[in-house]
C-alpha cells in the first residue's frame, strides 16, 4: 500500500525535473529550435484540420457571391490598380534616383529581392503569444530571421521553419524588437512589442527627443533582418513623465496583424553594407 502510494510521487518528481530541463534547453540553447521544428512535424495535420473549415467558408463565400458583386469588385480593383500603377511609376523614378544618390555616397543597402506570397493558417494561440503559422516552409526556401510583410507594413520575422510550415513572431510580441526611424526626421529607436495591448513601445527614448503623436515610423534597416524603409507603425501617444528616465511612446502597428490572411516573404538579397 505504502509503496504504491510512493510511486506517483517519484514519477511526478521525475517528470517535473524533465519539464524544467526542457524549458532551460529551449530558452538557452539556440540550436534546440531544430528539435522543436522536428517535433512539431507530426502535429502539422492538426493545424490544417483547424484551418480547413475557415478556408472552406471563405471559398464558398466566393462561389455564392453574386455576379453583380463580382463585377463591382472587379471594377473597383481595376480602378485601384490604375491608381497604384500611377503611383508606382513615380516611385520607380524616385527609387532609381535614390539608388544613384546612394551609389554616389558609396554606402548602399539596396533591397530588390525575391518575394513570395504565403497564406496564414487560421490557428489561434495563447493570448500572450503573438505568433502566426504560415503555409510555406523550408521547401520554398524560407529561413529563420526572414522578414514578413503585409500590404500595409512589417508583420514580423520567421522564428521556426519546418518543411511545409513556418512560424512567424509578430512585431507586437514581447520577444520582438525592430529597429525603426521616424520618417519625418530620421530619429532612430528600437520598437519592442507589447503582447497585451497588441501595440509597440519605443525603448529608451530620451524625454527631449522630437517625436510627436502621428509620426510615421519606418524600418531603419540597421538590424540586417528587416529591409529598409518599410512602414512599421504610427505613433499614437507620447507621454513625457518627468519622474521617469525615458519617454513612454506607444506605436500602433501599420500592418494588419490580426486581419491579414496573405503575407509577403522577402528575400533581402543585396543587403551588403558597403562602407569605405
Amino acid at each position: 500500500m505504502f509503496a504504491k502510494e510512493a510511486q506517483p510521487g517519484f514519477r511526478l518528481f521525475f517528470l517535473v525535473v524533465l519539464a524544467i530541463l526542457l524549458m532551460i534547453l529551449d530558452k538557452q540553447v539556440s540550436t534546440f529550435n531544430q528539435v522543436r521544428a522536428a517535433l512539431s512535424m507530426p502535429l502539422l495535420p492538426l493545424q490544417y484540420i483547424v484551418s480547413w473549415p475557415i478556408q472552406l467558408i471563405d471559398k464558398t463565400r466566393t462561389i455564392i457571391s453574386s455576379h453583380d458583386a463580382l463585377v463591382r469588385e472587379n471594377l473597383d480593383l481595376k480602378a485601384e490598380q490604375l491608381l497604384l500603377r500611377a503611383q508606382v511609376q513615380r516611385f520607380l523614378a524616385i527609387e532609381s534616383e535614390n539608388n544613384q544618390l546612394k551609389a554616389l555616397m558609396r554606402s548602399s543597402t539596396q533591397v530588390q529581392g525575391k518575394v513570395l506570397v504565403a497564406q496564414l493558417l487560421a490557428v489561434d494561440t495563447d493570448p500572450y503569444v503573438n505568433q502566426v503559422v504560415l503555409d510555406k516552409g523550408s521547401r520554398q526556401g524560407i529561413f529563420i530571421g526572414q522578414p514578413v510583410l503585409d500590404a500595409n507594413g512589417v508583420m514580423g520575422q520567421v522564428i521556426q521553419v519546418g518543411p511545409l510550415t513556418s512560424r512567424v513572431l509578430l512585431v507586437n510580441d514581447s520577444h520582438s524588437g525592430i529597429p525603426v526611424q521616424v520618417a519625418r526626421n530620421g530619429i532612430r529607436a528600437i520598437a519592442i512589442g507589447d503582447s497585451y495591448s497588441k501595440k509597440l513601445r519605443l525603448m529608451s527614448v530620451p524625454q527631449t527627443v522630437d517625436i510627436k503623436s502621428g509620426d510615421m515610423l519606418v524600418t531603419s534597416g540597421l538590424s540586417q533582418h528587416y529591409p529598409e524603409g518599410y512602414p512599421v507603425g504610427q505613433v499614437i501617444s507620447v507621454v513625457k513623465d518627468p519622474g521617469l528616465q525615458f519617454a513612454t511612446i506607444l506605436v500602433e502597428p501599420s500592418a494588419h496583424l490580426d486581419r491579414s490572411r496573405e503575407v509577403l516573404l522577402v528575400w533581402p538579397s543585396k543587403t551588403v553594407l558597403k562602407s569605405n
Binding site: L22, M23, R36, L39, Q47
Partner: peptide, 22 residues
C-alpha cells in the same frame, strides 16, 4: 500532452507539461 500543447501554441517547451503534470 503538455509538450504537444507547447509545440502547438508556440510557448516555451515544457511549461504546459509542467503545469499539467502537477
Amino acid at each position: 500532452v503538455g509538450v504537444m500543447m507547447d509545440l502547438l501554441n508556440g510557448t516555451l517547451l515544457g511549461e504546459h507539461a509542467l503545469a499539467l503534470t502537477i
